[in-house]
Design a protein around this nucleic acid. Structure first.
Lengths: 254, 254
DNA sequence: CGAGAAGTTGAGTGCGCTCAACTTGGGTGG
DNA sequence: CCACCCAAGTTGAGCGCACTCAACTTCTCG
């Protein structure tokens, strides 16, 4: 079947000695491979390990009793996760592409290593700080008013984190449903927003899961969040009609 | 809606030797006192320090050029902040009650200390992990669909973090406007939701800024986010239509 | 080529935002 | 003490955006 109810138990094998930002920590690693939709860990599972994505992509998600799903984060190669738990995991992590490879490290050993190796400790600390940064800036996207702004912010985030290089298309490994649950919107609204952006020439599709950003300006303008200092009162960006302006190769001044 | 700009420069005095969760770090601290609305630091400021609230309360916020404000976090005594920046601060932190006292620590010295003192390093790491936890669970609230659920989740969060003891009223140091910008809703909607909860007997006001939670159940039910317990790997989770089905036992509340 | 999932588009409705008026509360000065 | 003021908070009316339901198309893979 296409929708495999994956075996809940995975076998983890000792990983190769990868040169890694985690330095000596790699000695503790074991790795496993996951199918699409398979759980790396589940809600409520005892939090005995830290994890890091080697290849592929995953989603960190929560489920409500009413059946709705919320995606907290998308995880890509290099991302450390699983430390955000006291005793048991508050979320589930599932692979979203086939062949996702994840390394894991015994939490206890890793903590001990961090205690004895300042380099590891600093690196872990930095990773944690970065996580806070990421989550906070994601809150800015979630908090935006209009659907167009949310999707625009999402595209920029994906571009910044996952793009191979500027100008080249951004691969979106996740489905529209995933995007919807990430942005707390309906799937249809995500689809409509993407269509609108395409029609305006802001983005271009190269396949459903690949997007080229043609014009960052309208997206960034909505995503910006900073003091205007004492800058002149800008046009109301919350007004969707600003974002909604037909693709202006040359903005009419005045 | 605009907040009076306070004098940007503060004078920081060496702090007392407080017994603190940060241990040896306290030797580096200096403290300052802030008026209501005054900035602890501003957007764009060079991030030279870590900070910790000693007394009072603050908000961490971002501003869009269109004048709208978003509140990322409310900070209470004990909370460490300011480390979520590479070079300059991405947000502003402002006191929300008069007489808010904040300690600060030179970032460079603190990092050095963390490198040489495993106890400090571990403590800082734990605080960072807790931050990630907090921000993530806040995203769950922000991502909820209805206004009632958002406000309910907010009240529970405040109760869990700030309540003196269970059953006693929860003090809300922030204004309705702050709550609105925290939950990404209109002030009026916040007010209406609170009124509705009061009318339903879920909460009780003892003054505008003090709430007693009479019945946690309806709030928690909306806030819950978990697997329905020991259920096996759920059927196709990826299909939202499965998830969207009305729950088996629908309890007509009211 | 067929089946099911993923994605898009359309029509209609409800919730929350907007604008506006009003009430409450805290602070100040006569 | 009360008069007054302004910010904070509440309530009401109306509208627009995003959700819902539904039909359809496109994609994926056996």
């Amino acid at each position: 079947m296409l929708i495999p109810t994956a075996p809940p138990v995975r076998k983890w094998k000792p990983g190769p000695n990868i040169v890694s930002p985690l330095g000596a920590l790699e000695g503790l690693s074991s790795v496993a491979r996951f199918a699409r939709g398979e759980s790396v860990y589940q809600y409520g599972e005892v939090a005995e390990y830290w994890y890091r994505i080697i290849a592929g992509a995953s989603r960190k998600c929560a489920f409500s009793h009413d059946g709705s799903r919320q995606i907290i984060d998308f995880l890509r190669p290099g991302d450390l996760f699983g430390y955000d738990a006291r005793d048991t995991h508050s979320f589930a992590v599932e692979a979203i592409v086939a062949g996702t490879v994840v390394a894991r490290y015994s939490r206890r050993c890793a903590e001990q290593l961090a205690d004895s190796d300042p380099v590891v400790a600093r690196r872990v600390r930095e990773l944690a700080f970065e996580s806070v940064c990421r989550v906070q800036s994601r809150m800015l996207i979630l908090g935006r008013a209009s659907a167009l702004e949310k999707v625009g912010g999402f595209l920029l985030e994906m571009a910044d984190r996952f793009a191979t290089k500027s100008g080249s298309p951004v691969a979106l490994p996740m489905s529209r449903y995933d995007i919807a649950d990430y942005l707390a919107m309906a799937v249809e609204t995500v689809s409509r927003a993407l269509t609108l952006l395409r029609e305006r020439g802001v983005i271009q599709f190269e396949g459903v899961r690949s997007v080229r950003i043609c014009d960052r300006d309208p997206l960034e303008r909505a995503n910006e969040s900073l003091y205007s200092e004492s800058i002149a009162p800008p046009p109301s960006i919350r007004d969707p009609r600003v974002l909604a302006q037909p693709n202006s190769q040359q903005s009419p001044s005045g």
